[in-house]
């Protein structure tokens, strides 16, 4: 209908500096609508979390590009610890205005790391006590973390759990550990 008009390409526009903000209430209400919509289309809590995680992945992969272009001069991390620190620090700060509370390494499993956030932004307005033990909407954030890791060539699976607030369990594929060890020995 309007195709006769010449649309300016999005690539002709400069990339914004990424400093603008919107209201938290608006974001929270949008997120609530997303959870509500998704809830109506699935059968189980785990299915709901999977779908939230997939949507988060879409956001995370794009944020990774934005941050790498803007702040990292196109350089990406190559070591496990550094990419995790990048997530805990720069990535978290850009998205949520603060660093993640904690980063821990599991004692009994070399491949497992924990990123701990007492009160993730997406859970701020969701009543916790009733849902405890089941749905954690921070699965959305878990998807973002997974995107950053996979997008930086650290294949991993990330899930969100109710523990010390919310704990994001990061489990790397064993190939990632093998590579990290190789880089060390050089």
């Amino acid at each position: 209908m309007m195709s006769s008009k010449s649309k300016p390409s999005i690539l002709d526009r400069p990339l914004s500096r990424g400093k603008s903000e919107v209201s938290l209430s608006l974001f929270a209400l949008l997120f609530a609508e997303i959870v509500h919509y998704t809830h109506n289309r699935v059968q189980s809590v785990s299915e709901l979390q999977n779908r939230l995680s997939e949507m988060g992945y879409q956001v995370g992969i794009r944020m990774l590009d934005l941050i790498v272009v803007r702040e990292r001069n196109l350089k990406r991390e190559t070591k496990i610890l550094n990419i995790l620190l990048f997530i805990k620090g720069t990535f978290w700060k850009t998205l949520f205005g603060k660093e993640a509370d904690k980063l821990e390494h599991a004692n009994d499993d070399q491949r497992m790391y924990y990123i701990i956030e007492k009160e993730p932004l997406v859970n701020t307005f969701i009543s916790v006590p009733k849902d405890k033990g089941s749905l954690n909407c921070a699965a959305y954030v878990a998807g973002m973390i997974e995107a950053v890791l996979c997008g930086s060539n650290f294949p991993a699976k990330v899930t969100a759990h109710w523990h010390k607030g919310t704990t994001f369990m990061v489990r790397f594929e064993s190939s990632v550990l093998a590579r990290d060890a190789q880089v060390d020995t050089r």
Binding site: A28, H36, I126, S127, P129
Partner: peptide, 16 residues
Amino acid sequence: IRNPECKPAEPITSEL
């Protein structure tokens, strides 16, 4: 208002 569990125009049951 900010609690997605509470629907407008329904009795409020939230303990909080």
